[in-house]
Design a protein around this nucleic acid. Structure first.
Lengths: 207, 207
DNA sequence: TTGATACGAAACGTATCCGTATCTAATCAG
DNA sequence: CTGATTAGATACGGATACGTTTCGTATCAA
C-alpha cells in the first residue's frame, strides 16, 4: 500500500510541479459568462476573457479544449441563489419570489443572461440543454412548488394546469424584461399587479 | 436610408445609365433577414447574403454603406400580415389571433425572429428600436384593440390594465416558443387553455 | 451607336480571432 | 537545491469576414 499524505486518504497523490490556481479558474468562468452575456458567443473573444480574468490565454486552453467547452462550462456553473419563499399564502409567496428575482436581476447578470440565451439557443442546442436543465428547470421547480402548495391549501383552484400557470407567471415578467428595459422598482410593482390579475382573472362577473 | 436616383424628382427625370434592379433589392433584403434570423448578426456574412440572393457583393454595398445598415433596413422591412379578428367575442378574437400567430410562425421566419432579436437587442440599441416600433408595436396594437373592444362590450372587467393584459397574453406564448420548441398544434392548444385561464383566474372561489 | 451606369464575379488589403507554441518567472514536492 | 509544472505574455499560422476595387458584360437614354 502506498504511503498516504497526511490525514488525507481519499485524495489522490498530488501531481508534481506547480499546482493549478483555483482562483484563476473561478475568475475565468466569471469573466467568460460576463463576456458571453455582454457580447454573445461570436462577439466575445478568448483574449477578452483572459484580459478580464487577469490570466494568460494559455491558462484558459490548459483547462478547456475549446471556446465552446469553456462557454458550456461557464453557463453550467451559473447558479441562481433562489430560495422557496414560505410566507403562508400563495399570493405572498409569489410576491416574495418576484422580489427575489428582481433583486437578483439587479445584482447579478442573470437578467441579461436570459435575453442572450434566447438568441444563442437557436444555433446552439447543447448550450440550450445546459441552460434549460440548470437554470430554467431550477426556476420552474420553485414556482411549481409555490403553486402546488397553494392548491393544497385551497387557495388556488384544483383544476388548473401547474405548468401553464408557471408560464403565465414567468412569461410576462420575462417578456417585459426582454422588450422594455424596465427599472427594477417598476418591475416589482407590475409584478404585484400581474399576480393579482392572474389570481382574479379578467372576465367580467356575470351581472 | 435607401434612395434611388432622382426619386424625389418627377418620375420623368431619370439618371442616365442602367437603372438599379428593384428585384435585386428585394431578394437582398429577404436573404439578409433570413440569414440574420438563422445565424445572428455576427454569424451571418455579406457573402452568404449575396450568394443566397443571387447577386454580387458589390451590388449590396452599392445600396447600403455597411452590414449594420443592411440589417437595420432588413428588420425594418419585415412586416407581419396580422389582421384584427372580429368574431363577436373577446375570447373568440383572442383564439383567432393566436391561430393567426401560429400559422404565421410556421409559414414565415417571424417566430425565430423574436428569439434572435431578444439576444441581438442586448448589444444593438438601434436594431432594438426598429424592431420594437415596427413589429412589437404593431402586434401589441392588435391585441390592445381586442381587449379594449371586450371591455366596451362588457365581457372584460373595466378596471384591468390593458398593457398588463397584453403582456399576460403574449408573454406566456413567447416564453413557450423561446424555451420549448413546441409544435404549432400544441401551441394552439395551450393557447386556448391560456386564454381560458386568463379569463377565469386561478384563485379558488370563496366557499 | 455612344456614353453612363449597374450587374455578377473575383481578387485584394486589412483586421480579427481561434488555437498552438515558445519564452521567462513563479510555485510546489522531495 | 533540483526537477516538474503552471503562471502570464507574446508571436505565429490558418481561417474568416468586412469593405474596396477591378473587370468584362448588360441595360438604359439620347
Amino acid at each position: 500500500m502506498l504511503r498516504l499524505p497526511n490525514e488525507v486518504e481519499s485524495q489522490e497523490a498530488r501531481a508534481p510541479g506547480r499546482p493549478r490556481s483555483a482562483e484563476a479558474e473561478r475568475s475565468i468562468l466569471t469573466a467568460a459568462l460576463d463576456r458571453f452575456i455582454q457580447d454573445g458567443y461570436l462577439g466575445m473573444s478568448i483574449e477578452q476573457v483572459a484580459a478580464q480574468a487577469g490570466v494568460g490565454k494559455a491558462t484558459i486552453y490548459r483547462r478547456w479544449p475549446s471556446k465552446e467547452a469553456l462557454i458550456t462550462d461557464a453557463v453550467g456553473s451559473f447558479s441562481e441563489e433562489l430560495t422557496v419563499p414560505d410566507t403562508g399564502s400563495a399570493r405572498g409567496d409569489m410576491l416574495a419570489l418576484v422580489s427575489q428575482i428582481v433583486d437578483l436581476a439587479s445584482s447579478s447578470p442573470s437578467g441579461g443572461c436570459f435575453a442572450r440565451m434566447a438568441g444563442e439557443m437557436v444555433s446552439n442546442p447543447e448550450l440550450a440543454k445546459v441552460y434549460k436543465d440548470k437554470v430554467i428547470g431550477h426556476r420552474r421547480a420553485i414556482v411549481g412548488h409555490i403553486i402546488t402548495r397553494g392548491m393544497e391549501r385551497g387557495e388556488l383552484r384544483r383544476d388548473i394546469d401547474v405548468d401553464l400557470v408557471i408560464d403565465m407567471l414567468v412569461g410576462p415578467l420575462l417578456y417585459r424584461s426582454l422588450i422594455k428595459r424596465a427599472a427594477p422598482a417598476e418591475t416589482a410593482n407590475s409584478g404585484a399587479h400581474l399576480i393579482d390579475t392572474l389570481l382574479a382573472g379578467i372576465a367580467a362577473p356575470l351581472h
